[in-house]
Design a protein around this nucleic acid. Structure first.
Lengths: 167, 167
DNA sequence: GTGGCTGCAAACACTTTGCATTTTT
DNA sequence: AAAAATGCAAAGTGTTTGCAGCCAC
């Protein structure tokens, strides 16, 4: 139902390790295992999705013929966030995810009419983040900058073609 | 449980109408009514709180001797957001609220160790927001800039005194 | 008096967890 | 063989809603 994959996206970075390799590495350090369900999920996520939520991932994985339980999906998503492969986005009350590996740092514009999410890069933001942090003795680990409003398509045509539930 | 009121806050603006008056006005336009429970909630919120969540509000209202149901609290919070008196903050999966009336525009730093939220003002952010939006033909309605990291107290003393569940 | 409000409890949507079984190394 | 992961279903959270009675205008 949620076309959470519909983000206008930036070009991927080239990274040396595959997401799967990076995940295995992370798991090995913690004495945990890269199992078949986890492999399937990583593949599904990094081959197909951009922005998505747990529900959509469950659906897509089932559609491609794999029977992975909801519980495992949730558990794996948490691991992928801890591993630095995914990042949580909290535009609404359900948690959405986006790639955090092999992808440049960026921020988002969220059109509240068609729900589309557009990514953009702006280096000044990081500069401000660091300056503000320094001024407050705050040690920054990350930031989120989200612009909400109406995208060009929606303010031009007043007949939004897509009003989807999420992201 | 969640000490959601603990934000380092900016000085309030002076506004001509009271929050209650503004709420009444909003309700009147929609043919809705400013009832006693709603009055109590507005008073509680604008006298006491800064950042809070539904649960905390229920608790505080009960503590001050009023019996207002959870349902009414949720319904009123939604109205207050629609009325422009409160703004939703979505730092975690539960919804937190902050004053959006009689309070200057600002952004947040969120300490992931002690959960404290510190507010700051920076006008450059708005400038960047508008520039980025213009470049994309996006009509901005608002923005959220959140810096996550570790506050000075927590990185100094490595014995965080407060590790609360939320906000 | 009427339409909106309230409280209650039940329903929801999303996410987590306990446990017996299976899989991985 | 030991340790960890899975699936299932049940339990949690946080929030919304249907409905009978109540209240403000």
């Amino acid at each position: 139902m949620a076309d959470t994959g519909a983000a206008d996206q930036l070009a991927p970075l080239s990274v040396s390790e595959t997401p799967e390799a990076k995940f295995r590495e992370f798991l090995e350090i913690r004495g945990e295992k890269l199992t078949e369900p986890r492999r399937v999920l990583v593949r599904q996520i990094f081959d197909t999705h951009k922005h998505f939520d747990a529900d959509e991932l469950v659906r897509d994985v089932h559609d491609s013929g794999h029977a992975i339980s909801r519980a495992t999906v949730y558990r794996t998503l948490r691991l992928l966030v801890e591993a630095g492969l995914l990042r949580e986005l909290r535009l609404t009350n359900r948690t959405a995810y986006e790639h955090d590996y092999g992808y440049p740092a960026h921020d988002h514009m969220h059109c509240t009419v068609c729900n589309r999410v557009v990514e953009f890069r702006n280096d000044e933001i990081r500069r401000i983040r660091d300056a503000v942090s320094r001024a407050h003795g705050f040690r920054p680990a990350g930031h989120r900058f989200l612009i909400t409003g109406v995208c060009s398509a929606c303010s031009r045509a007043h007949s939004p073609r897509r009003r989807l539930d999420l992201i």
